[in-house]
Simulated assay, not measured.
Amino acid sequence: MALANNLTAILNLLALLCSIPITASGIWLASKPDNECVNLLRWPVVVLGVLILLVSACGFIGAYQYKETLLAVYLCCMAILIGLLLVVLIFAFVVTRPDGSYQVPGRGYKEYRLEGFSNWLRENVVDSKKWGKIRACLADTNVCPKLSQQFITADQFFSSSSITPLQACSLLSLSLSSF
């Protein structure tokens, strides 16, 4: 039993040490000037880091000092965190599974339409407040200036098969903002 507790204590100490940079990066993101891409991540990263810190501290203390109550709390909290992670992963998979892409004749890349994505994603992107934030986030990535450096002529661009969905989305957002 002592080996299991020592192993649990060591693993939780490592998790505790790993939670410090996670929390620090969330605080660092919170101190950055407003950027729509970073704005979505700042507080969830801080909360995740603090939760990992608390749960791993509970597991470390419980395993190191043989406190069964703390170990029980640790196991329940860890089960809840793992369950939440699975829910988030399944949700992300279901929402992003249909990718909205279709092949265009004469083009080496795929184009994307909102009709091909899930209803939840469409409803959240079509909202004008959210679309403005998404467009600002895409504009901050400097994807389009990099494309203009990569492709000299329009024929090179249209025949390329190396255009990523982010680059296609950036082009779409810039073309929609010009209307």
Rank of each mutant, 00 (worst) to 15 (best):
L114W: 12
V50H: 01
A9W: 04
Q149H: 09
E36R: 11
K129N: 14
Q103A: 13
P145Y: 05
I61Y: 08
E115F: 03
S173W: 09
A57M: 08
P33C: 02
S160F: 00
R122A: 06
K129T: 13
G108S: 04
M1D: 14
S177N: 09
L14V: 13
S177L: 03
W120K: 11
A154V: 13
L147C: 01
G116M: 05
V95W: 07
V55W: 00
Q156D: 10
T164K: 12
V104K: 07
L71V: 05
A136D: 14
I80W: 05
V50W: 02
N142K: 15
N5I: 01
L138P: 03
E68M: 12
N142G: 11
P21F: 00
A92L: 14
R107E: 07
G83D: 01
T141D: 07
C58Y: 02
P105M: 08
V126Q: 13
N39M: 10
E111K: 11
D99V: 05
Y109C: 02
K67W: 13
P145M: 04
T8D: 04
S56A: 07
G108F: 01
R135D: 08
I82Y: 04
G100Q: 08
F93Q: 08
L7Y: 07
F157R: 10
R42M: 06
N39I: 08
V95C: 06
L40T: 09
S160P: 01
Y66M: 13
L48V: 08
V88M: 14
A24E: 02
V88P: 07
S178H: 12
R107C: 07
E115I: 06
D155E: 14
R122M: 10
N119A: 15
P145H: 02
